[in-house]
C-alpha cells in the first residue's frame, strides 16, 4: 500500500511539474508556431513577482501568485506587441529573438533586483502515510495543474474566443477573411501563454531558490513535454506529461535523477522519430482510423 502510494506520489509530482512547465510554452507553440526561448525567463519573472508581492508587500500568497501571473502576462503582451508580432511569419527567427529576450530578462532582473530575492517558505507542511512523510503542497500543485488544464481546455473549446483562436491556428487566412482579428488572437494567446508561465513560477517559487537563472531549470523539461505532446497544445501537454511523468518518476526512483533526465531526452528523440506529430497526433490518427 505504502509502496503503491509512493510511486503514485512521485508520478503525480513529476506529472504536475511537467504539465505546469510546458503548458504556456505549448499553447504559444501550438497556436502561433513560435518556439519561445524566453519561456523559462517568464517563469522566473512569475516567481520574482510573486515573491516580491508576498514578502515585501505582505499580500497573501494565493493572491500574489495570481497577481504575479497577471503581471507576467501583461509583460508578455507588451513584448508581443512590440517585438514578437513582427515575427509571426518567421518562426525560426523568433527562436533567435526570444533567446535575445531571455538574455536581457535574466540579466536585467539581476541588475535591477539583485542576485536573489526572499521567497516565502513552502506552506501546508506534510502528511504521513505508513511511516513515510510527503509534502502536502506538492499534492496541491497536482490539483492546481489539473484545474489549470481544465480551465484552459474550457477557454479554448467552449468559448467564442477559443473557437476563433483555434480557427486562427488552423487556417489563419480563412479565419481572417471570415472577420476574425487574427492579430488580436495571437496577442491574446501570447498573453495566456505568458500568464501560465508566470503562474508556474509563482506556484513553484516557495519550493525553489528565486534567482535570475532559475528559468533555465524549467526549459529542458518544458521543451521535451511539448515535443512529445505534439500539435494539440492542451491534449498533447496532458498526455505527454502523464507519459513522461511515469518515465521520469520511475527511472529517477530506480536509478537516480540522472537516469530520469536522460530517459526524458531519449523518449523525446524516439517519439519524434516514430510519430513526429506527438501523442496528440497519434490520438488524432487513431480517431481517424476509427471513423
Amino acid at each position: 500500500m505504502i509502496l503503491v502510494f509512493r510511486h503514485l506520489y512521485l508520478f503525480l509530482d513529476s506529472f504536475s511539474f511537467l504539465l505546469l512547465s510546458a503548458l504556456g510554452l505549448s499553447i504559444i507553440y501550438g497556436m502561433m508556431g513560435i518556439i519561445n526561448q524566453a519561456h523559462g525567463e517568464f517563469i522566473m519573472l512569475g516567481a520574482y513577482f510573486t515573491s516580491l508581492l508576498s514578502v515585501a508587500l505582505h499580500i497573501p500568497f494565493i493572491i500574489s501568485i495570481f497577481l504575479g501571473a497577471i503581471l507576467t502576462g501583461f509583460l508578455g503582451l507588451l513584448l508581443d506587441r512590440t517585438i514578437i508580432c513582427r515575427l509571426y511569419s518567421r518562426p525560426l527567427d523568433s527562436i533567435v529573438v526570444t533567446w535575445g529576450i531571455s538574455l536581457i530578462l535574466s540579466q536585467g532582473i539581476r541588475i535591477i533586483l539583485g542576485n536573489s530575492v526572499e521567497s516565502i517558505s513552502t506552506p501546508l507542511g506534510s502528511f504521513t502515510i505508513g511511516n513515510e512523510k510527503f509534502s502536502t503542497y506538492r499534492m496541491v500543485l497536482v490539483a492546481v495543474a489539473v484545474i489549470t488544464l481544465m480551465v484552459v481546455y474550457y477557454i479554448f473549446n467552449h468559448t467564442e474566443f477559443g473557437l476563433k483562436a483555434r480557427a486562427t491556428m488552423q487556417r489563419s487566412d480563412i479565419a481572417k477573411s471570415l472577420g476574425v482579428n487574427t492579430d488580436k488572437m495571437y496577442a491574446a494567446t501570447f498573453f495566456i501563454g505568458s500568464f501560465l508561465a508566470g503562474l508556474t513560477g509563482g506556484l513553484y517559487s516557495p519550493t525553489m531558490m528565486v534567482v535570475p537563472t532559475m528559468g533555465t531549470s524549467f526549459n529542458m523539461q518544458a521543451f521535451v513535454t511539448v515535443i512529445v505532446g505534439g500539435s494539440n497544445p492542451i491534449l498533447g501537454s496532458f498526455l505527454s506529461s502523464a507519459l513522461l511523468g511515469i518515465v521520469n518518476s520511475e527511472l529517477s526512483g530506480w536509478a537516480g535523477s540522472f537516469a530520469g533526465q536522460i530517459g526524458l531526452l531519449i523518449m523525446a528523440i524516439i517519439f519524434i522519430r516514430i510519430c513526429p506529430l506527438g501523442v496528440s497526433g497519434l490520438v488524432d490518427r487513431l480517431k481517424a482510423v476509427r471513423r
Binding site: R6, Y9, L10, D13, S14, F17, E132, K133, S135, R138, M208, M214, T216, S217, F218, S249, S252, G253, G256, S257, F258, G260, Q261
Partner: peptide
Amino acid sequence: TEFVPMGTTQFSSTITKIQ
C-alpha cells in the same frame, strides 16, 4: 549515495530514497 545532475530542481524521488 546519490549523485544529482547539475541544474536539478525537483527532489521528490531523492527525498523518498533517503527516507
